[in-house]
Each structure stands twice: as C-alpha cells, then as structure tokens.
Simulated assay, not measured.
Amino acid sequence: MEWVSEALLIGLRPHGETSAVIEVMTPDYGRHLGLVKGARSRRLQPVLQAGNSLLVTWRARLETHLGLFSVELSEARAARLMESAAGVFGVQIVAGHLRLLAEREVHPGLYRAAITLLDHLDGFLQSAALVARFELMLLDELGFGLDLTRCAATGRTDDLRFVSPKSARAVCGDAGAPYADRLLSLPAFLLPGADDTPDAADVAAALKLTGFFLDRHVAGPRAIDLPSARAQMLGKLEGERRGR
C-alpha cells in the first residue's frame, strides 16, 4: 500500500540508533504514524521538527502496519515558532490537541485550522485567542461542541454572556446574572460572526471555558493532562491581566 500527502509534523520518538517514528497530521489520512529511516541524520534533523510541513509518502505491506515514511520539507516553520513564547506554546498545544484524535480518523477542517493557527502566531494575545477558537473547533469535532447560538433559558440570540457547565449552552446576561457564580464566562469574541478585539481577561476566560470542557469530556475520562504549555499560556495571560 502507498499514499502521498501533505502533512504537519506533530511528534517524533527515537527508534533504534538512527531511525525515528514520526507522528503527522494529514488532511486525508488523519493522524498517522510511520517509521523514518535515518531520521537522526544531519540532513533530516532540521526537517523533522514539530511544526514543519512535509510532503510524506507512506508505504506498508498491509494497511494495519506501522509502515515507512519518506519525507520532504515543504515549509520550514519550526525555527520561526521557537523564536517567541507564542510560537513555542502554540506548537506544543496544537500538537498535544491533535494527539487527542483517534489515529487515522480524518479531520480535514482541524488540519487546515492547525496550519492557519501556526502561520499566525504573531503576538501573544492574538495567538492565545486563536488557540481558544481552535479548541472550540476541537470540541465540536470530538462530539462535545458548545451551543453558542442562543440562550438556553430564553431563546434570545443577543447579550450572550455565560455558558452553562451542565448543558454547554449559552445563557444571556439577564437570565444568567442570578447564577453567575455557577456559570462560565463567555467572551464576546468567541460568538459566531463576532469581530470583537479581546483583551487579556477575555482570552483568559475563553481558555478557562474551553479548558473546562476539554478536561471534563476528553482529558479527564482518559486520565491524561491537557498540554502543560496551555497552563503556561494561561498563566502568562493572567499575569498580563493583573498587571493592567
């Protein structure tokens, strides 16, 4: 069997003295693993860095086998990402989240969203906001999407300020105010079609919102932690918010 695809490199682990098993996300074959011979050579080490885009050819005798990858660099992104906190946190979070997907399960929308996010990690606040939006999409793809279209209590589509931790549905300001201490904050920039420019407090609230549901539905049941870079990003946002 053989196929060729563009791919985003999200992980690598050594195998033997000179080879490695790489983990990539592809638009048509999902999250996929394969062996790269000579992966630790001087030629391939700069290529096989998380965040780089590759052109990969996968070959195996049977579809169920690990298989062999041959790789070519199509976009060197990793070096630029390592130059800023936003880039370092961003690539670690994206890679960690993509590992939550079932192996070889196709998610072309998430693949494209991951590439777009990694190509726009310019400022820390903007990058963190992109991560929050990516996590909303991830929850939806995993079957745990939030309903942010109308108020669960009144049906209103305006003044949506909270999310119910039980139903994962939006709640408007009037209906939610008496129960605000039991609801999750909903920053306006996460609403469908919103063009609001969020501040550090908004983005921190967004990450707390998505993190709550990722932990409840995905990480918790698997007894795993969300990427540590995510907590570091949130901590930096909290520091910026307190510094204002």
Rank of each mutant, 00 (worst) to 15 (best):
E6H: 06
G11E: 01
L12I: 12
R13S: 02
E17L: 13
S19R: 05
D28K: 10
D28R: 11
L33H: 10
G34K: 09
L35W: 08
K37R: 15
G38L: 13
A39T: 07
P46F: 13
G51T: 09
R59K: 15
L62R: 14
H65K: 01
G67I: 03
L73P: 08
S74K: 11
R77C: 11
A79W: 00
S84Y: 11
F89I: 08
F89R: 04
F89Q: 02
Q92A: 15
Q92G: 14
A95M: 08
A95P: 06
L100W: 02
R104C: 06
R104H: 02
R104F: 07
V106N: 00
A114Q: 01
I115M: 08
I115R: 14
T116F: 10
D119G: 07
L121M: 03
A129I: 08
L138A: 06
L142C: 12
G143Y: 11
A153R: 14
G155L: 05
R161M: 12
V163F: 07
A168W: 05
A170T: 08
G176M: 13
A177L: 15
A177G: 06
R182T: 06
L184N: 07
L184P: 06
L186D: 11
A188C: 09
L191N: 00
G193M: 12
G193N: 06
T197G: 06
A205W: 00
A205Y: 00
L207E: 11
K208Q: 13
F212Q: 08
L214T: 05
R216G: 02
R222L: 14
I224N: 10
D225V: 00
A231W: 08
R244M: 02
